[in-house]
Design a binder for these strands. Structure first.
Lengths: 313, 313
DNA sequence: TAAAACCATGACAGAAACTGTCATGGTTAA
DNA sequence: TTAACCATGACAGTTTCTGTCATGGTTTTA
């Protein structure tokens, strides 16, 4: 085995063990203890954060920021990483912000000059637009850790009327429209509630563990798969503009039938409970669509139109 | 200089030159030609995509997917990368999707087992919520390239009334609410327009170059600070629901005045050109708001309401 | 057609780097 | 005090690396 390959493996070994002696390494790799020492100082020079504790029950230790063996990327892959970081640029708070910087620096330093220039040009050409929020969310990392380790959190939260202290079992966090949200099981209320993380005033990790009832993806999907109670047939005629508009609604898109580029219709089944929302949606599209069924929807739209005329009479 | 360091530098050299002979390398690094050959096969084995052309005026060449020298990341940095990729998960189309996969694979392969498990748990704990769009946008990469190279594009686009063919000078692309948008200078209309890339039916790169008038960040900032040509006073009364709704609109938010939790108003100045959009917005809010000024806006809303009643008469 | 300018590869001796063995000198915990 | 660690240096034997030389390709150009 070449020396390079061996050092490479040694990095992996070191990260896996976290704590070990030179003797361990010597045995594992079939080398002498002296050489084990030599190799270990080699990888320490390469950047693996090792330190040693002398004395009996001493040995080598790895600092918590463990190092991965060197990886070779190509230019396109570097682009992909910078590009992904772009997507995070507009968030005021991120759980990994410091490390995004350090990855960028390391990558950037290794690029040839012309590629650097290309990367520099990236944000003049592509952006992920997000509401630029000014409210910071300082607890993101703690929440992630607590959710992953299933630990209860004690938080002080700005509610509608007052600040409350609650014990919650966090399910996870998600970003939407520039805000961070934490769905969590509220112990006192006995149900899952949604918290905006920027409204958390203080946070404390407790030692208590909890039994996870749900994972984040489950929670996010939950509301979209409403079980139909009283189904209603939906039939809507679409003009060209109606087609264009409805196609950008994920919940309608699958049910659109295009008759010609200028004509189409929607045929689907919705639930009674969704009627209010659907009415609002088709109302707002005005004459770009014409609802045929259900009757209630047509009535709802007419009623809304009448209300407006009444208001501005 | 150690061999490792030298190979490292050689990778950089090779990427910078793209085409060179063993003799060049020997001179550059002060080694013999024979050793240059040996080193070059070494880095080729390491994954640098070299090939050679024999014969006079032959030499070593680098394939277009250029390789960066090996980089060492630590666990936190790997997390940051995976995390950034998470943010892109809900996009149906991305310009660099293939390379995101390959970066993930390379990184993942180098992780110790326990870290792998942590990464696997990441999406059960954190998500970037985005409308999950089903409409694909196949031309993203072409647009970026054209924008960066300042090349005119010929596109067929689904407009309100018909499909049109236009020659446009793309400024860039940006993502918002799960859609991709391309602001571009429309040659025929002589102004910058905004296109949704999923509405582009076909695209052709022309050989023609253009003089860039504006970069993407400029454009994104400019649209919010439209120079008022013919300013119009806007005054809208808000109910409790109106307050709630308007507050989540970043363009309205600064102008909302809350009189009581159940009452408020908007007082602002908008531009004549924005009237159509604003009319649509307040129309859709129905009786939650009451527009007082401008007159045109009120008339527009009433007209839309009448049209609806006429349609469903 | 020959010469020039490349790459590819093997052989080999001398140089350089690496390795294991010993030895010595620390520190810490039991 | 002893055991179990790390740290480092010296040294000889081993391995690897390097440069030189030689041979055999291919392609361009004069």
């Amino acid at each position: 085995m070449s020396k390079a390959k061996l050092l490479f493996d040694l990095i992996l070994y070191v990260n896996a063990k976290r704590s070990f002696t030179a003797q361990d390494v010597a045995n594992e790799f079939g080398i002498s203890v002296r050489t084990a020492h030599r190799y270990l100082t080699d990888i320490a020079d390469m950047g693996v954060p090792l330190y040693t504790e002398p004395g009996r029950s001493g040995g080598y230790r790895v600092l918590p920021n463990r190092t991965l063996p060197p990886i070779m990327f190509n230019e396109e892959e570097a682009f992909a990483i910078f590009f992904a970081f772009q997507a995070l640029k507009y968030y005021q708070s991120l759980p990994f912000d410091i490390h995004i910087d350090s990855v960028s620096r390391k990558l950037y330093a290794s690029l040839p000059d012309d590629t650097k220039r290309k990367i520099d040009g990236l944000d003049s050409v592509i952006t992920f637009w997000n509401q630029k929020r000014t409210v910071p969310s300082p607890f993101l990392k703690e929440i992630i850790e607590a959710a992953a380790a299933h630990r209860l959190l004690k938080i002080e939260y700005v509610s509608k009327l007052e600040n409350t202290v609650r014990e919650v079992a966090p399910i996870g966090i998600y970003a939407s429209e520039g805000f961070w949200y934490m769905p969590a099981f509220d112990q006192a209320h006995g149900e899952i509630r949604l918290f905006r993380t920027d409204r958390i005033v203080s946070m404390e990790q407790t030692k208590q563990a909890f039994e996870p009832q749900m994972e984040l993806p489950d929670w996010l999907n939950r509301s979209t798969t409403l079980t139909p109670e009283s189904p209603v047939r939906l039939y809507v005629e679409l003009t060209r503009e109606g087609l264009r508009q409805c196609r950008s609604q994920p919940w309608l898109e699958p049910y659109i039938v295009e008759v010609s580029p200028d004509e189409g219709y929607i045929e689907s089944v919705i639930d009674q409970r969704e009627l209010e929302f659907v009415t609002g949606y088709f109302f707002q599209l005005g004459t770009a669509v014409k609802v045929i069924e259900p009757r209630e929807l047509v009535d709802g739209i007419r009623e809304q139109a009448r209300e407006i005329l009444r208001q501005y009479a």
